[in-house]
Design a protein around this nucleic acid. Structure first.
Lengths: 201, 201
DNA sequence: TTTGTTGTGACACCTGGTGTCATAACCTGC
DNA sequence: GCAGGTTATGACACCAGGTGTCACAACAAA
């Protein structure tokens, strides 16, 4: 969450970094998938990456953090997609498009992303960090809904939670149906849980 | 989650228990509220309860567990409420009634329950345990929806996530609006996020 | 070569959580 | 009152995640 300092890997001056955050994340995720998140010790990751235990924490604040490298970018894309809705566009369409765009991954990274999603959604030890990311999604959507004309004061909060619920549900379906198209499932799921267009009168 | 052994406090034979799970939970929750969950060490709780650190873990498996004593009962009530829906009753009404009934707390415990909800919803360190409870809520609702006539295969999953989302949203509103009636907010929130009655044709 | 900079490793420390074992404190039977 | 069995407790050792501190390694520039 907070801007964490990281080795620069190839800047001017100083000792060169022994590895990169990206490579470290790859090594860690591979270990998580093979021997499990809990059973993988930081020592294991450090040894596999050729660094010391202490150095791992210079790249990531916690063991869980390695799985959330994409989160800031995804959140930024969501916020961007919700910035200025086309006038006359139903809000549900705006939200759905924004979410689908924010979570788009190139086909070459599907497997990688699906495995990460599976870990994030099923490992309890990851929920402490995940809950922070989820809260930002909820808040972003709620903030957007607050700018909509609505009569029910609960509407924005409901939209925020519905967006998150639809997103999580879609991922849950995705990880149990590897062949499915995440974007399509997202659209259908959000169509089911998003509150009806508020009748501004 | 798993059936944990606990001191019996007043059964036949043996050394009498030094405290009870209930009392220990009260002591712990009080500390969590005053100095924060993370800053409260198990030593603190044990000392306040007059027991040793090791003994604490004979009553609760983790520090977080003390805040989830009510969860099994609430879940059981939810499942009971979803057991046999009155025929012809719209499913959304059934679900809403079941959730509201499952989460009903006597007025005398409102403060206590609200503080617990606030901790559970806002402390990241609690989310590992909370996610397990949430999953059971989702699954119970999804299981119920699976018994409904529906054309969209995503419908049950959507209902499960919508029920959880509505419940969490209602609690979120509740903890920020102490005067509000949780049951009423639950009804309105679920009305917003629950998928429309499936048209069985 | 010297100086400054940046990353790393070693070490000590705290907390949450677990396994093991001796013993305190109760009961019943004698 | 004393033995034997039972139940809970406390002390101790241990592991893993995470943090603070400090010396030093490895680079660039002067």
């Amino acid at each position: 969450m907070q801007e964490r300092w990281r080795p620069e890997a190839g800047e001017r001056g100083g000792r060169p970094a022994a590895t990169t955050a990206h490579e470290l994340a790859a090594v860690a995720q591979r270990l998580f998938l093979t021997i499990g998140f809990e059973k993988t010790s930081i020592e294991d990751i450090a040894r596999a990456a050729g660094i010391s235990r202490r150095t791992f924490f210079r790249y990531f604040a916690t063991k869980a953090d390695v799985l959330f490298v994409e989160s800031p970018a995804e959140l930024a894309r969501l916020r961007e997609g919700l910035r200025q809705p086309a006038p006359g566009d139903p809000y549900r369409a705006v939200v759905t498009r924004a979410v689908a765009a924010a979570l788009h991954v190139p086909a070459s990274e599907h497997e990688w992303a699906r495995q990460r999603a599976q870990l994030i959604l099923t490992v309890p030890a990851l929920q402490a960090h995940a809950s922070l990311v989820f809260a930002e999604w909820r808040d972003s959507a709620a903030e957007f809904a607050r700018g909509l004309p609505h009569t029910d004061e609960l509407f924005p909060l409901a939209v925020g939670h519905a967006v998150l619920a639809g997103t999580l549900a879609a991922h849950e379906h995705w990880i149990t149906h590897p062949g499915s198209d995440l974007a399509q499932v997202l659209v259908r799921m959000l169509d089911l849980v998003l509150p009806a267009e508020p009748t501004a009168r």
